[in-house]
Nucleic acid binder design. Structure first.
Length: 597
RNA sequence: UGCCCGAUGGUGUAAUGGUAGCACAAACGAUUCUGACUCGUUUUGUCUAGGUUCGAGUCCUAGUCGGGCAGCCA
C-alpha cells in the first residue's frame, strides 16, 4: 500500500515503511485481533521533546495512519514532583506541529474533562475512555485522569491476593530486593490478610500515613531472575498536589502499574516503547492478566531509540546546556529539541523523512548526522523559494551603468517547480557580491571573480573585473567592473558561457538584516561519551552577520522557507523578528563539494 | 559473573531457508546562469567456530563483543 503525503511540495507517494513492529501490526490486522489499531505517544510532562521523541511519534502515528487507526497523545503524569503544565503545553504544540498535514486525523484526544466510563461487557464491569469526536472540545489524555480506575484495579489485585501493603522503608525494600545475581527475600508484610491490606490501602489513600511509610506492592516472586518481578511497587505515598489532578490524591501509582492500565483504559492495541522497558514487559503482562479484564489486552513492543552523531539527546545534558547558558534556551536553534528545530526552520516533513530513513529495529545504532542533513536539504530543495542575499558584502561598481538606472530582471523563484514563476530583481550601478566570491590571488580551480576575470551575475549578465580598489590597510573595499549587457537573458549573447556564476544584490534596493549562521553544536561525533561534554562545544556554532537581502525578502513570513542562492536554506526567526526588522536563521548550508577540496 | 536484548559495507537498513539489495557518505564523471539539484560510474559488508540442510545473513549449539535491568523516576 502506498501513502500519499499532504505536505505541500513533499515527495510523491512513497511505499509505506516496513519494519518488525509494523509486521506485527499487519499480522494482527490480518487476524482481526482488534477492531481498530490504536497506538499512543505517552511522554511524561517533565521536559521538552526532541528529535529522539520524534522517532517514536512518527512510528506510533505512522502505524495508526497506515491502518486507519488512531494514536493517542497521553501524558504519563504519575509523578507529580517532576511535572508541570508548562511541559504539557510545549509537548502538545510540538506533537501537533510534527504531525500537521500528515497524521492530524489520527491524533487521538479525549473530550475535555472526560474520565473513563463504567460499562458492562458480557455481564462484567469494565472501564473505557473513548476518544473525542472530530470537532468536539478535546484535550490530550492524561494518566492522572485514571487515578480512580487505577485505584480500583489496585483494590481488585488486593482482593485477588496479588498485592499487599508493605511497611518496609525504601532502604529496606532495596535490601530485600537482592541483586541481579542474588535472589531477594520476602517482605515480612507479604502475607497480610486481604482484609488488612484493604484497610491499610484505604487509609493510605485517606492520608493517614506520611510519605514513604507504606507502599502497595504486587505479590509476584522475590526470587525471580527478572528484578522487575520481585514484588514491584505499585503505589507510593506522596503528599503533594498534582499539576493536572489537583490535591485529590496523596498516593500515586508507579509507571509500571499505571502504564499498562492506561493503555487498557484507552483501548490501546500496540504499546510501543524503547528498549530499556524490555525487562518490564513481563510485569506489564502480569498486571493485565492478573486482573482478568473483559476486553482484548494491549501488548508492548520495544525498539531502539534514535542516536545521531554530533548530537546530544540526554535530557539532563540538554538541561545543563540551557542552565549554563551555552545556548539561549530550550528553543535554541542549535538544540535537537523540536522547538529548536522548528525555530531553526527545519520542516516537520524533514524530521518525518529522517524517521523513515532510519527505520525501526532493536539495534542501538548511531545515525550519521549527514542523513538528517540530507533529509532537511531534500525537503527544502523542493519547497524553498530562491532568493538573492549576500552574507558578507563587498561593493562592486558596474562602471558602464549610469548611476540612476535600474534594470529589472526576472529571477526564478524555484527551478524545482513544474512551472517555475519569477520575480523582478533590480540591477543597479552599485551591487554587493559575496566577499569570498572574489580572490585577488585565486587558488587553483577557482572559478569565481578575479582581477581581469569574468563571471556571471546570476540572472543578470556577465561582468569583467577591471579594477580592485583597496583601503590604506590594503584590504579590498571595492571592485570596478564592466557589465556586458548583451549577455542578459534574451540578449544576443545570452548563451555565452563563463565558468562562474555568483549571487549578488543591488546596493540601492537591498536592505541590511541580521542573519544567524548556525553550525553543529559539538565538534565531536559522540559528545555524550564523556561527562565534560561542554569541552567539545563548537565555538563557531553561531555566527551573526549583517547581510544584504534582496528587497522582496522584506515581506517574508514566518512560515516561508528560502534558499539564499549558493548559500543555504534560511527562514525567519519567529521569536526575534519584528515588523520591518526581520532576523533570519540559517537552517542548513547547501552541500558544498568545493569547500571540501 | 543472574536475567533479557542485540550484531549485515564508513553510517543507517533490506533480504521472513534460494542472485546479499537500497539510502546516506566517499571518489570519479556528465550536466548546470546555484561548485546546489539531477544523472551515471566506482569503492567497501553478513562477529567467530562448529552443526542441520541440496542450499544458511536467516535455523541450532557454543563463544566473542555491545547494550539494558537492582528508583517509593519514566
Amino acid at each position: 500500500m502506498s501513502v500519499a503525503s499532504n505536505d505541500p511540495g513533499a515527495a510523491p507517494a512513497a511505499p509505506a515503511p516496513s519494519d518488525f513492529i509494523r509486521d506485527i501490526v499487519a499480522r494482527d490486522v490480518a487476524e482481526q485481533r482488534y477492531p481498530t489499531i490504536v497506538t499512543r505517544f505517552p511522554p511524561e510532562p517533565n521536559g521538552y521533546l526532541h528529535i529522539g521523541h520524534a522517532k517514536s511519534i512518527c512510528l506510533n502515528f505512522g502505524i495508526a495512519r497506515e491502518n486507519q487507526g488512531r494514536c493517542n497523545l497521553r501524558f504519563d503524569d504519575t509523578n507529580p514532583v517532576k511535572e508541570d503544565v508548562e511541559y504539557v503545553e510545549s509537548i502538545t504544540a510540538d506533537v501537533r506541529w510534527l504531525v500537521a498535514g500528515w497524521a492530524d486525523h489520527c491524533l487521538g484526544l479525549k473530550p475535555r474533562g472526560a474520565t473513563p466510563a463504567k460499562v458492562t461487557l458480557d455481564g462484567r464491569e469494565d472501564h473505557y475512555l473513548a476518544p473525542a469526536a472530530a470537532g468536539a472540545a478535546a484535550e490530550a489524555f492524561f494518566a492522572s485522569d485514571y487515578f480512580e480506575q487505577i485505584y480500583g484495579y489496585a483494590v481488585e489485585l488486593i482482593r485477588r491476593g496479588k498485592a499487599y501493603v508493605c511497611d518496609l522503608s525504601a532502604e529496606e525494600t532495596d535490601a530485600y530486593r537482592g541483586s541481579p545475581d542474588q535472589p531477594g527475600r520476602d517482605s515480612p508484610y507479604r502475607h497480610r490478610s486481604v482484609a488488612e491490606n484493604l484497610d491499610l490501602f484505604t487509609r493510605m489513600r485517606a492520608g493517614e500515613f506520611p510519605n514513604g511509610a507504606r507502599s502497595l506492592r504486587a505479590k509476584i516472586d522475590m526470587a525471580s531472575p527478572n528484578i522487575w518481578l520481585r514484588d514491584p511497587l505499585l503505589y507510593r505515598i506522596r503528599h503533594v498536589a498534582h499539576h493536572h489532578a489537583g490535591d485529590k490524591w496523596c498516593i500515586y501509582p508507579l509507571y509500571d502499574f499505571a502504564h499498562c492500565l492506561s493503555d487498557y483504559l484507552e483501548g490501546i492495541t500496540h504499546s510501543v516503547c524503547t528498549l530499556e522497558f524490555e525487562v518490564h514487559r513481563p510485569l506489564y503482562d502480569w498486571i493485565l492478566q492478573s486482573l482478568d479484564l473483559p476486553r482484548a489486552l494491549p501488548h508492548q513492543y520495544e525498539f531502539a531509540k534514535l542516536n545521531i552523531s554530533y548530537t546530544l539527546f540526554s535530557k539532563r545534558r540538554l538541561l545543563q546546556l540551557v542552565t549554563e547558558s551555552h545556548v539561549s534556551g530550550w528553543d535554541d536553534p542549535r538544540l535537537p529539541t523540536l522547538s529548536g528545530a522548528r525555530r531553526r526552520g527545519i520542516p516537520a516533513s524533514a524530521i518525518r523523512k529522517l524517521a523513515t530513513l532510519v527505520g525501526v529495529t532493536k539495534f542501538e545504532s548511531v545515525t550519521d548526522v549527514a542523513l538528517f542533513e540530507h533529509a532537511i536539504r531534500d525537503e527544502l530543495n523542493r519547497a524553498a523559494a530562491r532568493r538573492l542575499a549576500v552574507l558578507r558584502p563587498l561593493k562592486l561598481v558596474l562602471t558602464n551603468l549610469p548611476a540612476g538606472e535600474t534594470i529589472l530582471i526576472d529571477a526564478t523563484n524555484n527551478p524545482q517547480d513544474e512551472q517555475p514563476t519569477t520575480r523582478p530583481v533590480a540591477l543597479t550601478r552599485e551591487v554587493y557580491i559575496e566577499a569570498e566570491d572574489f580572490a585577488e590571488v585565486p587558488p587553483p580551480k577557482y572559478f569565481r571573480l578575479k582581477p581581469g576575470g569574468e563571471v556571471r551575475l546570476k540572472y543578470a549578465c556577465i561582468i569583467k573585473c577591471d579594477e580592485v580598489v583597496k583601503d590604506a590597510a590594503g584590504a579590498v573595499v571595492e571592485l570596478r567592473c564592466t557589465a556586458d549587457l548583451t549577455t542578459r537573458a534574451g540578449g544576443p549573447n545570452a548563451d555565452r558561457k563563463v565558468k562562474g556564476t555568483i549571487h549578488w544584490v543591488s546596493a540601492t534596493t537591498s536592505f541590511g538584516a541580521e542573519v544567524r549562521l548556525y553550525d553543529r553544536l559539538f565538534t565531536v561525533a559522540e559528545p555524550g561519551a564523556t561527562d565534560d561534554f561542554t569541552r567539545h562545544l563548537n565555538p563557531a556554532s553561531l555566527q551573526v552577520v549583517t547581510a544584504r537581502l534582496e528587497a522582496s525578502l522584506a515581506d517574508a513570513r514566518v512560515e516561508d522557507r528560502f534558499q539564499f542562492e549558493r548559500l543555504g536554506y534560511f527562514a525567519l526567526d519567529p521569536k526575534d523578528s519584528a515588523p520591518g526588522r526581520p532576523v533570519f536563521n540559517r537552517t542548513i548550508t547547501l552541500k558544498d563539494t568545493w569547500a571540501k577540496a
